[in-house]
Amino acid sequence: MKPTIRDVAKMAGVSISTVSRVMNAPETVVESKRLKVLDAIEELKYQPNSFARGLIYRKSFTLGLLIPDIENMYYAGMIRGMQDACIKLGYSLMICNTDRDPERLLSYIDAFHEKQVDGIVFASDMLFPEYYDKLVGCRIPFVMVSSHSDEYDIPSVEVDDEAAAYDAVKFLIELGHKQIGMLGFNDVNSIAGPPRIEGFARALKEFGLEHNLEKVKYASHRFEHAYEASHELFSEYPDTTAVFCVADEFAMGAISYLKDRNVLVPGQVSVVGFDNVRMAGMFIPKLTTIAQPIYELGYRSAEQLHELVTTGSVKVTREKMKHRLIVRESTRER
C-alpha cells in the first residue's frame, strides 16, 4: 500500500499541515522539523498524488494542446518537443485534435477549463474573436505556436514564413528555373498560407519573373488534394520546370503526380517542400525543403507557456525561430 501524507506525519512526529508546509513552503518550517519530514519522505518513498499536489500548489501541473490535424506529420515533431519540455518542467500534456471545427475547438476549451489545466498551447490556427473571448473568459493562460495574432497581444513562437518561402523560390531561380509554379493552402483562414504566397511573389518580382505569379494552385492540407492541385497546375502550365510547395506533404503529392505521368524529378521538374518532416529524408527522391525547427517550436512553446503561467508574462512576446534550406535530391540545376 502506498504511503500517505498521514504516514509521513506520524513517522516524523508532526502534524499533517506541517508536512504540507514542508512541501509547499519549506522556509516556514523550523529546520529540525523540516529535516524530520524530509527524512520520513525519503524513508517511506512518499510521492503526493496529482490531486493532493494540486491542492497544495493550486495547480493541476497539466498543459493543454489544441492542434488542427493530429494525422499531419508536422505535428508529431511538435508534440514530441512539447512532451519533452513538459517532462522537464513537471507537467502532463493533454492533446485535443480540433479538425479546424469551431464548435469542437470551443468545447475542448471548456473541457480544459473543467480539468483545470494551467495553460494552453494553440497551434497552427487563426485566433478568432470567439476563441479569444472563450479563453479569456475561462482565465486560461495561452500561447500560440506556428501561428500568431495581429489583433491580440498573445505570446507566440513561429518561423518567418514570408522569408522562408522567399529563400525557397530564390534557390529555384538560382538553379536556373524560369517557369516556376506553387502549391499553396486553400484555407482562407490559414495563418501560414498568405505570407508564403508573399515570399513566392517577392522572389519572382526581384528576379523579373512576374509571369509566374499566376501559376499558383491551392489545396487543402492533405497529400491527395496536393496531387489533384498538381494535375491542375501542370495541365494549365505544362512548361513548368519547378514547383514550390507550402508543405512537405504537398511536395510528396506533386512528385507522386509527376511520377505517375513519367515526368522525372528532378530530371525534368524540381520540387521544393516546406517543414522538413521526418519523412522528407525517407521519401524518394529525398526532399529539398525549408526546415522549420519543429521539435524546438514545440519545446519552446511549452517553455513560453510555463513562463507565462508562473510569472504572468513572457520576455519575448513574438518569438521568431530560424529556418534553413536543406538541399537533397528533388532539385537540380536547369
Rank of each mutant, 00 (worst) to 15 (best):
F128T: 15
K134H: 04
S92Y: 13
R100N: 15
F122Y: 10
H113V: 09
D118T: 07
D84I: 04
C96M: 14
V117M: 02
A123Q: 06
G137H: 05
H113W: 11
M126W: 11
I120L: 01
Y132L: 00
L105R: 09
L89G: 08
V136F: 10
V145L: 12
E151K: 12
G119H: 01
L89Y: 01
S147P: 01
A123C: 13
I120D: 03
L105M: 10
I87F: 14
M126C: 10
D84N: 06
R100W: 11
R104H: 09
S124W: 09
D99G: 11
L93K: 02
V143I: 07
S92N: 12
R100K: 13
F112M: 02
D101Q: 05
E114S: 11
D99P: 09
G119C: 05
P102K: 10
L135T: 06
K88R: 15
R139V: 08
A123V: 12
D101S: 09
R100D: 15
H113R: 11
D110S: 07
I109E: 00
I140M: 02
F142Q: 03
D125T: 15
F142M: 07
D153W: 11
L135K: 01
E103T: 12
D99R: 11
G90W: 06
F122A: 03
R139Y: 08
Y91Q: 01
S92K: 10
D153A: 14
E130T: 10
M144V: 09
I87N: 13
E130Y: 12
F122S: 08
G119E: 02
V136I: 15
V136T: 14
R104I: 11
Y131S: 03
S146A: 14
G90E: 02
P141Y: 06
I95M: 02
E151D: 14
R100A: 15
D153P: 06
I95H: 01
P102L: 15
L105I: 07
A85L: 01
Y91I: 01
F128R: 09
V117R: 02
D84K: 06
Q116K: 14
E130C: 13
L106E: 10
A111T: 13
Y131W: 04
L135I: 06
V136Q: 11
K88S: 13
F128V: 14
G90K: 05
S107K: 09
S92I: 08
Y132I: 03
D153E: 14
L127K: 02
S124Q: 06
K115D: 00
E114H: 12
Y152V: 08
R139S: 14
Q116E: 13
V121Y: 06
Y131V: 06
A85D: 03
F142P: 03
Y152L: 08
C96A: 14
T98W: 06
H113T: 14
L93A: 10
Y108E: 01
L106W: 00
H148L: 15
Y108R: 00
D101I: 08
V143M: 02
V136P: 05
M144F: 07
R139F: 04
G137K: 03
D101N: 13
L127C: 07
S124D: 09
A123K: 01
Y91E: 06
I120V: 14
V136H: 11
L127M: 12
P141K: 10
D118R: 02
V136W: 09
P141M: 08
D118A: 04
A111C: 11
C86S: 11
K134C: 08
L127H: 03
Y131R: 05
M126E: 15
I95G: 07
